[in-house]
Design a protein around this nucleic acid. Structure first.
Lengths: 114, 114
DNA sequence: AGACTACATGTAGGCTCTCTATATGTAGGC
DNA sequence: GCCTACATATAGAGAGCCTACATGTAGTCT
């Protein structure tokens, strides 16, 4: 998967996996892998900063927990985040439609005088 | 259309519109607009450098022409570009499938003891 | 004890691409 | 003369994803 292709879609992916159950960063990475059938291998250096950014702009909140002696920062969707996710979903639908449409192979143009 | 979303898909779009007929930059921008039903308004500052990049890496060739007193640089797909376009198309199909799959809303998880 | 793997979070710096803004020039309408 | 459409080009900004590295706990294997 070309990394650049993810640009601008990361937020949607992240918000989507925490939609119904709050998850910590590491679990989010695993969820992304699982839901994509292994296609999405998003590095920690991408996910952790992105989650903090989403928290900073109010789409997520986080709280620390200790499980099995390990500290986790668990992220939860806010109301703002839920609205954002809705918007991201419809933006994705439009985007996929537009790009898919342009990429669609055309029948070869008939040549003048051909 | 969020500009960041185009990242990594620009090449595919550009190669796709010159697949059957060579076009110059300005016409490529118009073709993109037309094929997308007006959704794709790609600025010249994006398209011209991108075309030169695609030429530099061998996916396009260009030649100058003068039409109606104006100079045009017309771009044509190379064999390498044709292969690249094929790859971009299948990459897009996989990408759209993966992102669409992850974004797909799930039924709410049943709670333990609920 | 030491080494290794899985779990878990975080930052610095680099890289690439897209965008904004600007520059240049021709042709044609008013 | 002024404006719009056509046509190409570059500089610099901005954003965000990645690589690489730093830190630390828990458990397994030898």
């Amino acid at each position: 998967m070309n990394p650049d292709a993810l640009r601008g879609h990361m937020d949607a992916l992240l918000l989507s996996v925490v939609e119904y159950e709050p998850l910590h960063g590491y679990a989010i990475i695993e969820a992304l892998q699982e839901r994509s059938g292994g296609a999405l291998n998003v590095p920690t250096g991408t996910v952790y900063p992105a989650l903090r950014r989403l928290e900073r702009i109010g789409h997520l909140t986080s709280e620390w927990a200790t499980v099995g002696g390990r500290k986790r920062r668990t992220y939860r969707l806010t109301d703002s985040g839920r609205k954002q996710l809705e918007g991201e979903r419809s933006a994705w639908a439009e985007f996929a439609n537009v790009i898919g449409g342009v990429l669609q192979p055309r029948a070869k143009q008939p040549e003048a005088g051909g």
